[in-house]
């Protein structure tokens, strides 16, 4: 199956059938609960037990919002799919719901929101579903309005699945242009299934350099391929700050095993009689960090 984002616009993809899964599939329910719990943790709200006013971007069925409610917070959820919001009504979500396209901006007063989470929604903004859609303009409207409505020092934690590194770069750049500082936290970077990337953004001046938490499972604890265990223990927390020279954005680049090693390995495999792709200028090339 191609990625959902390539199949149809979100308000079509998240139709009644898809929305129904958010009450019937225990896997989906469990995944939403787990990711939203982690996102709330990464918001790093003061641990004084005082309820805050939060946003859930792409709140859908209200499963992620339920995590916020269970922790005592009030929330306002945005979603473009009426079918998903109907499920939220059915589940009696405690937050307020808005039928809204966040690519058009959030429409909130400045500085009133204490934090925002988003579960698997923001990558949808990278697709032009209508001729009038311009992904960059939509990302700008979204991040600009998000930045403005957050209180100084508040965070936004956006878990997202991006299709490739161009996309993650486009999203990150839009966030930085809006004024955010922050970086990416990757949980379980070594697992294709469990891997989750969170964009952790802070509004206004920040001390992210010291406070950005480590991803879970970074130390290879659930590394399945024994073969890889000698891989360098890669730094998976990228730190971005638009106030720093752009060159430093590339910090902590993973060092792979190198082209020479790869070519040797391929030669060995060929000698054993395996079919191995030809060596080209792309073989063993550097890849940028992406989430």
């Amino acid at each position: 199956m191609p990625r959902p984002e390539l199949q149809a616009p979100p308000e079509i993809f998240y139709n009644e059938t898809e929305a129904r899964k958010y009450t019937t599939s225990s896997r989906i329910i469990e995944v939403q609960a787990r990711i939203s719990t982690r996102a709330l943790e990464l918001l790093n709200l003061p641990s004084d037990g005082i309820p805050r006013l939060l946003l859930d971007i792409g709140c859908g069925s209200g499963l992620s919002g339920e995590t916020l409610s269970e922790n005592g917070h009030h929330w306002i959820g945005y979603d473009i799919s009426q079918s998903m919001l109907n499920i939220a009504l059915e589940r009696e979500a405690e937050g307020d719901l808005l039928l809204s396209d966040v690519g058009q901006g959030l429409g909130m007063r400045p500085g009133v929101i204490d934090g925002a989470i988003s579960i698997s929604a923001v990558q949808w903004l990278c697709y032009a579903d209508k001729s009038s859609h311009e992904p960059r303009a939509r990302l700008k409207a979204f991040f600009g309005s998000l930045y403005r409505c957050l209180a100084r020092g508040a965070r936004a934690v956006l878990q997202l699945y991006s299709e490739n590194m161009d996309q993650s770069e486009m999203i990150m750049k839009a966030a930085m242009r809006a004024g955010f500082a922050g970086g990416v936290v990757v949980d379980y970077p070594h697992s294709t299934k469990a891997r989750k990337a969170y964009l952790v953004l802070t509004c206004g001046p920040s001390s992210m350099q010291t406070s950005l938490p480590k991803g879970k499972g970074e130390d290879c604890e659930d590394c399945s391929d024994g073969d890889e265990s000698d891989d360098d223990n890669s730094e998976t927390v990228g730190i971005y700050d638009r106030h720093r020279p752009t060159k430093r954005l590339k910090l902590n680049k993973k060092k792979g095993k190198g082209k020479a090693w790869l070519l040797k390995k391929k030669e060995q495999m060929r000698n054993k009689g395996y079919t191995v792709p030809p060596d080209t200028k792309y073989t063993g090339r550097k890849r940028k960090n992406h989430f």
Partner: peptide, 13 residues
């Protein structure tokens, strides 16, 4: 929609 949300919302046109 609660009045809390009404209080925060502005027209986005």
């Amino acid at each position: 929609m609660r009045l809390l949300t009404h209080n925060m919302l502005a027209c986005n046109i």
